[in-house]
């Protein structure tokens, strides 16, 4: 069995020293894998990603239990910039680019750890190779980009840091289905081209499971399901709650769903 690139064990995160956001979450990403984490609003997906990528003092959040191991190193509660230097880079859900900087400046700002001038230029060129649209927008202020262009720029500026593991929070949020599909394809190309691993957090379950090698499902700050994406897609809960399908093909009423959830919590 291959050693995981990232492994999270029994993670517990507490905000403002009082509010527990996630509890006992364990997951792992193996080299070269795309791993999807699914869950509704408030399920703890973003908190998990933020814990892995590091909190600032401003967040007033801490990993209080469990551990996060990246390339054999414990990284919980380290500073975000140090974690980025290790090769673990986050593309956040909101505020993912610097809105008052141009596209070129957005790609110039990230620190490329231990990279010389030539290597740095190569990486920036690589971004324009993966996202040719950005090359035409070099001088444009990032705040004026469309949602899709902004997402490309965010991915590009993450790639300048030469990540081994890319954490992506809600790639599909607010984008047209066509744009999401093309971005997902681009993501697989990037994975194959650069040999990196991706941890993808998504609400859009079907599209995430389509490209993923493994999937996890979070609910209310806990891990409730995990497994092979194909198997997850067949799972009755996933079909009902994330894809809106029932076995008989008709939609369930809100009440039935609520009832079902309550019973799930007993054996989940």
């Amino acid at each position: 069995m291959t050693v995981p690139l990232l492994s999270v064990e029994k993670l517990e995160v507490v905000y403002h020293r009082a509010i527990t956001a996630v509890q006992g979450i364990s997951l792992s990403v193996k080299p070269g894998q795309i791993v999807a984490v699914l869950g509704n609003n408030g399920a703890g997906k973003t908190t998990t990603l933020r814990a892995v990528s590091g909190f600032l003092g401003l967040d007033d959040a801490r990993v209080t239990e469990g551990n996060i191991v990246f390339k054999g190193m414990r990284i919980e509660n380290r500073r975000p910039d140090k974690i980025t230097h290790l090769g673990l880079v986050l593309v956040p859900e909101r505020d993912k680019v610097f809105p008052n900087l141009t596209v070129a400046e957005n790609l110039a700002a990230p620190v490329a750890h231990r990279a010389g001038r030539a290597e740095r230029r190569r990486r920036e060129a690589l971004v324009y190779e993966f996202f040719p649209q950005l090359a035409a927008l070099k001088g444009r202020i990032a705040g004026l980009l469309s949602g899709g262009e902004r997402q490309m720029l965010a991915l590009g500026s993450a790639l300048v840091g030469s990540p081994e593991l890319l954490l992506i929070d809600e790639l599909s949020l607010g984008l047209a289905p066509v744009a999401v599909e093309s971005l997902m394809r681009r993501l697989v190309e990037i994975r194959d081209g650069l040999g990196l691993s991706i941890l993808l957090v998504e609400q859009n379950a079907s599209i995430a499971l389509e490209i993923a090698d493994y999937g996890y499902v979070l609910e209310n700050g806990r891990l409730v399901l995990d497994g092979d994406p194909k198997r997850l897609l067949q799972h009755q809960d996933i079909r009902e709650f994330y894809l809106g399908q029932t076995t008989s093909g008709e939609r369930k009423s809100y009440r039935a769903v609520k009832q079902y959830r309550r019973s799930r919590r007993w054996y989940g």
Partner: peptide, 24 residues
């Protein structure tokens, strides 16, 4: 300059700046 651009970046969004490897 690269550090000047980083300074502006940190002013706009310190968290994202840190996540891009910039030492605040």
């Amino acid at each position: 300059s690269r550090w000047g651009v980083r300074m502006r970046a940190a002013g706009q969004n310190p968290l994202l700046a840190a996540q891009r490897g910039i030492n605040l």
